[in-house]
Design a protein around this nucleic acid. Structure first.
Lengths: 190, 190
DNA sequence: TAACCCATGTAACGGGTTACATGATTTT
DNA sequence: AAAATCATGTAACCCGTTACATGGGTTA
């Protein structure tokens, strides 16, 4: 229980998976599997966790008494539902108002482009087109979230507003990338 | 020497620091320290390496015979200069034409915003303004690269062109982020 | 002569993913 | 009856950073 605050003092760099998970549990009780699914639908463009992070972290949070668990049946299927405690809520809220830290920026695509004086023009153009395709896919995914997913979310206490804002962020950056790609292709074909 | 290709088969996810370093050495021979400095100036917005990656990786690359090293004096100061070998060049070029992999997207700032229904309006606005400040700093940094750094680079074989394109990418995204932040503040103040 | 770069490195630690494993239930 | 999905988990492994350490050279 105690060890967490101690870790913060000593280490500086702490695991943020915990906050992503606590935040979703503050919205409502969920199973590990539901957390995974939710992230795939809503937060994929700015936050993701793998199974191998979620399940162990839920156990850790339970030991720390930040969440409690209970067994529940959906039809005949059993699953473990986790609920946030007051302690967990407090820890989450403390994190929420802290200034966000910037993560390491690593973009392999730009790294390749940076070195592309060593490639043929054809190879560079092919890479750019691959990138265009992957960006288009993101755009489709975003439109899908906007039309099919977010439209079904109820707007208690501005929750939907903030979900929309993060989605908009993704859309803006995708559009910026598209414009930039078009510019690049224009310059290369000269 | 051998082990590298074997690792690729088995593991799938391999270290990309090697390519960033090989790419810079293909440009010209450099010391570890110069590699670090160069990245801080030119690639900071899409690629970074810490000392604790660069120096050990240079040693690994030397064992693999992808680079060779020699001692050099700058004034009285000694440093180890690394030069890429034909083998190293080949490995780099093979990577260069491969499709770029997308890294994990993790943006703590957006994660907080996503959960901001649990914060006060004042806290949210403060976070947005912090973000604005950090984005402005990026913009200044980019302008500095464009005006003071890139202007001094000679344009052998399109090198400068590609360096400019990656810089433009940063600029486009910074502008997109600024517009989005302005939109957010507008929506929140309603 | 103190402060600050230059220059190179290592140990320790936590982070996070892939791959593997299991078994039940529902759908086709 | 097979395939897909639900649901949960572990082991192994690499990744990458922080913190620490060292010592010489240069500048104010």
């Amino acid at each position: 229980m105690i060890s967490y605050l101690k870790r913060v003092e000593i280490m500086k760099k702490i695991n943020k998976s915990r906050y992503a998970i606590l935040g979703l549990l503050l919205d409502k009780p969920r199973s590990g599997y539901e957390i995974k699914q939710f992230m795939l639908e809503f937060t994929i463009h700015f936050w993701q966790e793998s199974d191998a992070s979620i399940y162990p972290m839920l156990k850790t949070l339970e030991v720390e008494e930040n969440v409690t668990s209970k067994s529940e049946f959906v039809g005949r299927r059993e699953r473990t539902i986790f609920e946030i405690t007051e302690a967990g809520k407090n820890e989450f809220l403390q994190w929420l108002v802290l200034p966000a830290e910037e993560g390491t920026r690593r973009n392999e695509y730009l790294l390749k482009l940076f070195f592309s004086a060593n490639a043929t023009k054809e190879d560079v153009i092919q890479q750019l087109q691959l990138r265009q395709k992957s960006i288009e896919e993101s755009e489709v995914r975003f439109r899908n979230i906007a039309e099919n997913v977010l439209s079904k979310v109820s707007d208690e206490n501005d929750r939907k507003l903030f979900w929309t804002l993060t989605l908009n962020n993704g859309i803006m950056h995708v559009k910026a990338e598209e414009r930039w790609l078009a510019d690049c292709l224009k310059m290369l074909k000269k």
